[in-house]
Design a protein around this nucleic acid. Structure first.
Lengths: 338, 338
DNA sequence: ACACTGAATGACAGCGCTGTCAATCAATGG
DNA sequence: CCATTGATTGACAGCGCTGTCATTCAGTGT
């Protein structure tokens, strides 16, 4: 008695047989990778269609064919920044027929290392990572992997292979200069859990440096040990203003989510922005730009980072020249909150 | 003369040789898939480490081993809803050592079909899709694929295999009932490009049905042919109020982004919410809940949809029973804008 | 008419691993 | 002491495809 068996997926050799050609010819026809008579092409395609043939890329890649998978490791999806980056990546990769294989490190270097090995074991064509304190072991694995690797977000680093991003320190510095130029004298800072966010730290440093150059310093600073959010920004500003320290005339927030929370607090507490208090953020999220009064912020080009990183991978795969460091820059957005 | 050749990655057989065991034993040791003496285990692990061995899952999967990739097809990453779903998916998948392989259909059924074939050619363990008008061909491919398939977001459908989501019609209906109960008499609607968003259409239908049951009808309706955004909602409400039709006492927006735009318009135009105009959205985004006045909305459980969908895939893979339809429900959020 | 060229096709081997089944061997029970 | 059992290991074959090199054959130049 025959055990009922799901009819196996048709293989290339069955397609070839039906089309009356050799396996390898069928392979070439279906990949358009080498010269095949239009006639043969037609026969093979017909055969494939009538059998419902679905290419098995596992076998193809194992046999030496190219992979069209690109490993992507991000620290989180909760922060809108990373979906934006991912969007840019996906867009460009998709154009070239590539797919991201995703891993989320949760800002954990150990998890990151684990993900690197795991994703690499599928022999992807390239790897894009927004590092979260990569271990030396991680770097070593990437170095030996022999595939294009792009580290994204930050370019104040020494990448294993390539890096695409912006200088967060420069962004903080630029914002400080801008605001100093507007005449603010007693700046304060409200931040989220920045121990996990070296880029926010870099912005803060740059901001401080900018103030320092103008003979100013932060009047006060509040950091809360939670991931950034609108609610947290609101809470953070309330806390800041509650203290009986020198009242700031300006608050620089660790990012736009936080800053929008600050704006909401002002709305609710009847604080005039920017007359009583100016507010600035970072990222240039749509959210902040759709407020009744546009948020002053620095626009980071997140999607462009993704696109550019994907471009680096693709360029490298096609043997084109690639830059080690790519600065996508940032732009200061002079909104109405400062 | 020897062409310089990147030292090939060590293979399992080299590890086995170094460890002094057979290939298959090394394989088992590294997978912990069958009984191996602690001693052998140690030897093999040491050998693997000292060689910098990196498992090749391409070969493993081809040889009949399991895949830990799950294809995920979403219509977009621009709408925060989908990153939320993806987060839920990734979370649960990661727990089980699985990775999402991502494809974005851009709401295009043809692209969707293309993605399905493409991703399936990597022989993933399962597939999760937020359908965008799946073609019959797509459904057929999925049916024949012989892997767990979960269609997400909507459960008002007839899925190929499983579906996880909520009834958007019911959500619209519930919101209508709630608002009718609050005494509003002249409701209006502001929506985005809903031709591409059947779920928004379903909510609108449900909303209309709810009104109808109470002897009411939509006083006015504005739909704009762009993807939803805060700015678009703002613009939409302005347009609605600009018309010299009966003034609404309530506007139901196609989603929270749009509704928040509406709130912002009211702030800017000096319209008191909810005294002059009530506003309701859909999704329960953090954004709306952090407004100075919390937005009235329906919370969709996006992350839970992702988690549940991943759970279905995993359950099926482990031979556990799975439901064909899973309703994750929704919850009405009575905010201050109504 | 003949060697020569290039396009189209094919034979072969093997990518690196795991499922299946068989072999080995110490421990157990009578 | 011998058959039986279960735990551990190994031999073998093959997953489905593509790179490499060889072969075929029509078209070209002299």
């Amino acid at each position: 008695m025959q055990i009922e068996k799901r009819p196996r997926k048709p293989t290339l050799s069955e397609v070839a047989a039906l089309a009356g050609v050799s396996e390898i010819t069928a392979s070439r026809a279906l990949r358009a990778s080498a010269a095949v008579t239009p006639e043969t092409l037609q026969k093979v395609q017909d055969a494939a269609r009538s059998l419902g043939y679905l290419r098995n890329r596992l076998a193809g890649a194992l046999a030496g064919g190219p992979s069209n998978q690109v490993a992507v490791i991000l620290p989180s999806l909760s922060n809108i920044v990373f979906p934006d980056v991912l969007k840019g990546l996906e867009d460009r990769l998709d154009d070239a027929g590539f797919h991201p294989v995703l891993g989320i490190s949760n800002y954990d270097p150990a998890q990151e290392e684990h993900l690197i090995r795991n994703l690499l074991s599928w022999r992807p064509a390239g790897l894009v990572i927004a590092p979260s304190g990569m271990t030396e072991a991680s770097r070593a694995v990437l170095r030996d992997a022999g595939l294009p690797v792009v580290e994204i977000m930050d370019i104040d680093t020494d990448p294993v292979d390539m890096a695409v991003g912006m200088s967060h320190r420069a962004a903080g510095l630029a914002m400080a200069r801008h605001l100093v130029g507007r005449g603010y004298k007693t700046p304060a800072y409200v931040g989220h859990d920045i121990t996990r966010d070296p880029r926010a730290v870099a912005r803060l440093e740059g901001f401080r440096a900018g103030l320092h150059q103008a003979g100013l310093a932060l009047a006060d600073i509040v950091t809360l040990a939670s991931p950034s959010s609108v609610a947290l920004g609101r809470q953070g500003l309330a806390a800041l203003l509650d203290r009986n320290t020198q009242h700031p005339d300006l608050v620089y927030f660790s990012n736009d989510d936080m800053a929008v929370g600050g704006v909401f607090h002002c709305m609710a507490a009847g604080i005039a922005v920017p007359a009583d208090l100016a507010i600035a953020g970072f990222n240039g999220l749509e959210l902040g730009q759709s407020l009744p009064v546009r948020l002053t912020t620095t626009a980071s080009h997140r999607t462009r980072i993704g696109e550019t990183a994907a471009g680096c991978i693709l360029d490298r795969l096609q043997g084109r020249e690639t830059a080690r460091l790519t600065d996508v820059g940032f732009s200061l957005v002079e909104g109405g909150t400062s």
